[in-house]
Write a protein that binds this DNA or RNA. Structure first.
Lengths: 342, 342
DNA sequence: CTGAAAGCGCTTACAG
DNA sequence: CTGAAAGCGCTTACAG
């Protein structure tokens, strides 16, 4: 029982003495097929290590059983670290896809370029997952274009009402609020916020809004001089702290909009001889693995990447199947470590 | 100029007033096509946002323009950290694929399960890249099966002569040798080696062989009592150090077969009140981002993941195109930090 | 330089 | 329960 090259369903049909469509039916578990016939077919297929040709099958069925993950990275000149938070998301998305029986195409995109987002148009994928697309205002036009084209997609980001497409995110406002309340509870009063709080970065902005709300809840006002823009990198965190120190702005705590910023800030503080948390408490956001490794451990707001990955995949599959779905935001969880407590 | 649903090449043909094959030729850059005709076709295709249906194209051409990355992970009960080294590899493989014009399917595999390695059989991918497949002796049977089936694949691992398929790895022997020489140069004489040195983990074994060779080059013998098995995790590193201390084995340096092991070892040493590097110097392997973050910084052997990713992808594509290729090993580079020097 | 024809390997109505 | 037929959207000899 041998066949030249990879076997086709026609080869199986010949060997089983049935027609090719019957092989197809048996393989797909069509209940109409006689049980004996099915068994014979499956045995032969197994023996020949036959696998359905997905190109043929997908062409006929007009779908691919595949999702595409578009991961956007800054074209950093120094080839610096990708935010480990996204690594974690990528892992959970991969696993969620496997659970749902979808394959996953992964593509790293340059923010500067035109997006290479034609996986659905070329029928290689049934939908897209967008991760880390940078400046929201710049991305917005392209997101709207995807919506217009009828592309199925979900993105990780701020789940705000007026945004195009479907966004899944964590409750950034709540996270920002929790961190600042935690710092206030520890007796801190002058809390610097490191992170871009403009509409370009809606997630950071929400964290900042939560921060301001917590201050107000405590009867305090937000000091604009204590907010410093920073993108999510260690370098930016160090720069922000140095800018504050050099400007002579007094502060007893730092709330960094991401752990990478926080870690950069911790280094810069230590380099200037400041003790953490004695002189300055530091809080972050994400709970990347490094947060637990640095000394002292970094207090941070944990995002549940496992739930996030599942929800992204499930929501996208719902959208592909034509089920209406909207934004969704996930609860967060404060993890207290040595950088804010003694 | 509108079309119901996603446009096909036939739609373009109608609009351009040519036959469908001419559209196909124009789109693929066939030089036979009249320049004016081509321009007209491209303009229409662009306007309709037409993309070639990859399922149809791949079916006809019998290839997919896609590679599959099989990433094996231990079914760790605690959902612990994936070795960050593999994250880095994944990034460089993704980028290398993009450069070569291939798409990349990513699949996380459970070590325990049967491998889900039928991407090539089902024509979803032209070849496989294997990363982190655990115990080599257990994997060997499956690797041999892939070879027998004629599957195109490359794997990251020890590039040793008698292994099935094509392996790309770093020069583990050289790396092991360099680290131990570095520790000896620093005046250390009792160097514990943490890592499984059995044929189950050929990469660790090579690192160990390099270590032993460096000892011999210095006129020293290897003390079997100083080698402790450990898989690549912080937990295993901590366990190994505690086992040595509890057994009362004296040592003034630790050479961990991976950075994760080293970091676990550093924590365990610190917990027992030992100073790094004063009491015990610590060296690792991989140069994961955390190695630079821990205090003191971890001296380690850097693997060039960028070159590795490119080489894996290039070699696989060569193999797919029928070009003979063999194992390949990449140079390594010692990075000295505070864990071994003052 | 271009068109008519065949065919990649499936899946799914349509008959029987 | 099963087979003959059509067709998914391309690409590539083969004619002209």
């Amino acid at each position: 029982m041998t066949v030249k090259g990879r076997p086709t369903s026609l080869d199986i049909a010949h060997l089983a003495g049935v027609s090719q469509p019957t092989v197809s039916r048996a393989l797909r578990g069509n209940p109409m097929v006689n049980a004996d016939t099915r068994r014979r077919i499956l045995a032969i297929a197994d023996q020949l290590n036959y696998k359905v040709d997905k190109n043929a099958s997908n062409l006929r069925c007009q779908q691919s059983g595949t999702l595409a993950l578009l991961f956007f990275e800054d074209p950093a000149p120094d080839d610096s670290l990708i935010n480990p938070f996204f690594h974690s998301m990528m892992g959970s998305i991969t696993r969620a896809c496997a659970r749902r029986g979808y394959d996953l195409l992964v593509s790293f995109q340059q923010l500067s370029d035109d997006w290479h987002a034609d996986y659905e148009d070329s029928k290689k994928a049934d939908g897209l997952i967008l991760l880390g697309y940078g400046d929201y205002l710049q991305a917005r036009t392209r997101l709207e274009q995807l919506v217009r084209q009828g592309t199925h997609f979900v993105r990780w980001g701020a789940a705000l009402p007026d945004q195009p497409g479907i966004a899944i995110g964590c409750d950034n406002f709540q996270g920002g609020h929790a961190m600042t309340r935690h710092l206030l509870d520890g007796g801190r009063r002058r809390i610097a916020f490191l992170g871009d709080a403009s509409p370009r970065y809606p997630e950071f902005r929400e964290r900042y809004r939560g921060h301001v709300q917590a201050l107000q809840d405590a009867g305090l006002g937000a000091d604009a001089g204590l907010q410093v823009d920073a993108i999510s990198s260690e370098t930016a965190g160090g720069d922000a702290v140095r800018a504050l120190l050099d400007a002579g702005v007094g502060f007893d705590a730092v709330f960094a909009a991401s752990d990478l910023i926080a870690i950069g800030a911790m280094r810069a503080l230590a380099a200037r001889g400041l003790q953490i948390p004695a002189d300055v408490a530091v809080g972050g956001f994400d709970d990347i693995p490094m947060a637990a490794m640095v000394a002292p451990g970094l207090t941070t707001v944990q995002q549940d990447t496992r739930a996030a990955g599942s929800l992204l995949v499930d929501t996208l599959i719902d959208a592909i199947r034509g089920q209406a779905c909207g934004h969704h935001s996930l609860p967060v969880h404060l993890v207290a470590r040595g950088s804010t407590t003694t």
